Simulated assay, not measured.
Amino acid sequence: MPCNLLIRGENFDVDLFVEQTGIPPYEITRKGEQTGASRLQKKTMHLSTLHYIVSEANFDDHKTQIANALTFFRTHGEQLAKYATSANIDYTYLDFGMDDHIGYNIICKTFEFPAELLQYLAAIKCDLLVGIYRSNE
């Protein structure tokens, strides 16, 4: 899932946040819950987390990821901003997964994020994270 919004907090009431915003998350984890498929993989969650899928565009389709993120925030930005600053949230970040596709003749690769998207992120005190994944090509 190349672009995700994660909202986390030690004392974050994820259920109340979803109820107030009306934005259904992809996944909810609650502080104190056990995760992992086997006894050896189990761990106790120390934070409550809401996970929203913002874009399912491919890792190499940066323009669509960004367009989808703008659509998500144009749709939900006002509701997120209304509750995000008062809900015991410790961390919020928008995570873009992008491929490197850097060949031998390319020295640098840049990713441009429009000011409108950055304004939405600033309104909810959201960090921007870009994970660059090595391409198999």
Rank of each mutant, 00 (worst) to 15 (best):
Q41T: 15
L129T: 04
A115D: 15
L47A: 04
F111I: 14
G77V: 11
A37G: 12
V130K: 01
N4Q: 11
P25N: 07
R39N: 11
E116Y: 08
D100F: 06
A69H: 05
M98A: 08
G131K: 03
I23L: 03
Y83Q: 07
T21N: 02
A37V: 09
Q79F: 00
I7F: 00
H51T: 10
E33C: 10
R39L: 14
E137C: 00
D13R: 10
I7G: 01
L129P: 01
S48L: 11
D100G: 03
S38Q: 10
N58D: 15
Y83N: 06
F59S: 13
I89G: 00
A57Y: 11
L40N: 11
E19C: 01
D13A: 08
V18T: 08
S38M: 11
A37T: 14
R8T: 12
K31M: 13
T35I: 13
T85L: 13
G9A: 05
N58C: 12
S38R: 14
E112R: 12
N136T: 06
F17Q: 02
E112V: 14
P25K: 08
S86Q: 09
I66V: 15
Q41Y: 10
T71E: 13
T49D: 05
L5T: 05
D15P: 05
P24E: 09
R8F: 01
H51S: 06
I7K: 03
G32H: 13
K82L: 08
G77R: 07
I28H: 06
C126V: 02
D100M: 05
V54N: 02
V14D: 01
C108V: 15
M45H: 07
Q119D: 13
E33L: 09
T44A: 07
Y93C: 03
P24F: 02
A67V: 08
S135V: 03
M45C: 10
L47F: 06
R39E: 12
G36H: 09
T35C: 07
A84T: 08
E27G: 06
H101L: 08
K109Q: 09
G103M: 06
L128H: 00
Q79R: 09
E10Q: 08
K82S: 05
L121G: 02
Y120N: 07
A81G: 08
F17R: 09
F96M: 04
L129C: 01
Q41D: 08
N11V: 10
T110H: 10
R8W: 02
N88Y: 07
K125P: 02
Y120G: 05
A115E: 11
N136D: 11
I132N: 06
K63V: 13
D95Q: 08
Y93K: 02
A115Q: 12
A122I: 00
K109D: 10
K125W: 00
G22W: 00
F72K: 01
C126W: 05
K125F: 01
L16V: 10
T71Q: 12
Q34V: 07
E33S: 15
Y104M: 12
A69Y: 00
N68D: 15
Y133V: 04
T85G: 07
Y91R: 01
L50C: 07
A37M: 13
E19G: 02
M45P: 06
K43N: 14
D60T: 11
T110E: 15
H101T: 02
D15F: 14
G103W: 13
Q34S: 10
A37L: 13
